[in-house]
C-alpha cells in the first residue's frame, strides 16, 4: 500500500500579527490545494505562539508565513524560536511571502527562513520549490 501512495505534503499557511490582508494567503492556499497538498490555513491575526502550536501539532512539512505589514523582522524570528523549542525547526521548510525588502530578505534567511517569495513570484514556481524542498516525513 505504501508503495503506490504518493507522499502527502502538509502545509500551514499562516497570517501573523496585525495584518488584515489575506488575499495572497487565500490564493496560495488554493494553489497548494490544487497541487495536491494538504493545506491548513491559520486565519487572520495570529500570534507567533499560535503559529508554532499549529505547526507542531499538525506536523507540517512546510510553514508559509504571509506578512504584508512590515513586521517580519520581529515576528518571524519569534516563530523560528518557538519551532526550535519544540524541536520542529530542523525538518520544517520555512517560507515567507509578502512585501519583504531585499536587505531584509537576506537577514531573514540568515535567521532560518529557507526562501522568500515577493509579489512577482508565480504559483508554479512556489509549488515547484515546495515539492523539491519539503522535508521527508
Amino acid at each position: 500500500m505504501s508503495v503506490e501512495e504518493q507522499r502527502t505534503i502538509r502545509c500551514l499557511v499562516a497570517k501573523v500579527g496585525l495584518d488584515g490582508h489575506d488575499r495572497g494567503a487565500h490564493v496560495i492556499t488554493r494553489a497548494f490545494r490544487d497541487a495536491g497538498f494538504e493545506v491548513i490555513y491559520s486565519g487572520l491575526h495570529r500570534s507567533p505562539e499560535e503559529i508554532v502550536q499549529a505547526a507542531v501539532q499538525e506536523d507540517v512539512n512546510v510553514l508559509g508565513i504571509s506578512i504584508l505589514s512590515g513586521a517580519h523582522d520581529t515576528l518571524v524570528p519569534q516563530i523560528v524560536e518557538g519551532l526550535r523549542e519544540y524541536g520542529a525547526f530542523e525538518d520544517t521548510l520555512l517560507i515567507v511571502g509578502g512585501i519583504i525588502p531585499d536587505e531584509d530578505e537576506e537577514r531573514l534567511k540568515g535567521k532560518g527562513v529557507d526562501e522568500v517569495f515577493g509579489p512577482g513570484a508565480s504559483m508554479g514556481e512556489m509549488v515547484e520549490y515546495v515539492r523539491e524542498h519539503a522535508p521527508e516525513r
Binding site: 504518493q6 502527502t8 492556499t29 488554493r30 497548494f32 490545494r33 490544487d34 497541487a35 495536491g36 497538498f37 494538504e38 493545506v39 491548513i40 490555513y41 491559520s42 486565519g43 500570534s47 505562539e49 499560535e50 502550536q53 499549529a54 501539532q57 499538525e58
Partner: peptide, 27 residues
C-alpha cells in the same frame, strides 16, 4: 488533486496557545 484545505483550525479561538489542547486536522 488529492489536495485539501483543512479549515477547522480557524475556529479554535478559545484554546489559543494552550498546548494541552492537541488539535490535529486530517484529510
Amino acid at each position: 488533486s488529492g489536495g485539501a484545505v483543512l479549515g477547522d483550525r480557524i475556529r479554535m479561538g478559545s484554546n489559543i496557545g494552550d498546548m494541552e489542547v492537541f488539535f490535529r486536522s486530517m484529510s
